[in-house]
């Protein structure tokens, strides 16, 4: 509560939400629309991807794995960068929420990385003739999965919360070095993995409908990642700050009265 009062007195508007007491209800309000929007966008993206977008002349129907593979791969990198960002805030500003964000993002990031590798394998088999190859892009993505496991494992292995937070923050920052390696691996090395189909500096190398479906699916994956991370961070706040009154007092009073009734009834 003291933290909320202090944040009210000054500082940037966004810093007000660094206090778990303010962030908790805000996240609670955001979660349902984020999940719903994510589901709607995924449905739209899949409809365009399967019903509107044409079949690839070279890869046939197998190319449609792109609508899962690329969003998952992008999310795997983006989430790790977000973790590194929260890691910097954890070490510099020492805000409690930033450390919780790292812990909340890591499992979703790990799932996204797993999905990228899994779908990549099932895309590689019909197009390259193999599920796996020790290619620079694929290997660096696998290292990213291990980095996620590292952050999750590090937190689980250190009892002292503050030490665990610092260790995870540091690992998130150091591990972020791998992100440009993943992204530029197809340029730096001669890889079996194809180069980027979408670039900010060049025209897309795919049909407009394919690109639209892929971008919509990416947005859906992003919204899903944000929503699931918010659910997780709310659980972390509950767990770590058990003596904070997150709920409006009137609601609490009502339930306490209800509890009294049930006791007297028994």
């Amino acid at each position: 509560m003291l933290e909320v009062a202090q944040s009210d007195q000054g500082g940037a508007w966004w810093s007000r939400f660094a206090a778990p007491a303010r962030f908790f209800p805000l996240a609670g309000r955001l979660i349902p629309p984020l999940f719903v929007l994510s589901a709607v966008l995924a449905a739209v993206g899949l409809y365009i991807g399967f019903m509107v977008a044409p079949t690839d002349w070279q890869q046939g129907e197998a190319y449609r794995i792109i609508y899962i593979h690329v969003p998952a791969a992008w999310m795997s990198m983006l989430i790790y960068l977000a973790m590194a960002f929260w890691g910097v805030l954890t070490l510099v500003l020492r805000t409690r929420l930033s450390a919780m964000m790292i812990h909340a993002l890591a499992p979703t990031g790990a799932w996204m990385t797993f999905l990228a590798l899994w779908t990549g394998a099932f895309w590689g088999r019909p197009t390259w003739g193999t599920y796996w190859v020790w290619d620079a892009r694929i290997t660096s993505e696998l290292i990213l999965l291990f980095l996620y496991f590292g952050v999750i494992g590090l937190r689980a292995s250190i009892d002292d919360e503050r030490k665990a937070d610092k260790a995870c923050a540091l690992m998130s920052i150091v591990g972020a070095v791998n992100i440009p390696i993943i992204y530029f691996s197809v340029k730096w090395w001669n890889t079996l993995h194809q180069g980027a189909s979408v670039s900010l500096t060049a025209a897309p190398k795919m049909a407009q409908t394919m690109l639209s479906a892929m971008l919509i699916m990416t947005l859906a994956a992003w919204l899903y990642s944000v929503a699931s991370s918010l659910v997780r961070v709310r659980s972390l706040i509950i767990e770590r700050e058990p003596f904070q009154a997150w709920e409006p007092p009137s609601v609490g009073a009502g339930l306490r009265i209800g509890a009294e009734h049930s006791r007297s009834g028994a």
Binding site: T55, G60, E61, A62, R64, I65, I68, H69, A72, W111, F114, L115, W118, T119, F122, W123, R125, P126, Y224
Partner: peptide, 19 residues
């Protein structure tokens, strides 16, 4: 054109399981 439905099914089943 080869039938790629197995690879598509395996790829699209994964996110469902993950979710």
């Amino acid at each position: 054109m080869k039938d790629h439905s197995f690879y598509l099914a395996m790829s699209y089943a994964a996110p469902v399981v993950v979710v």
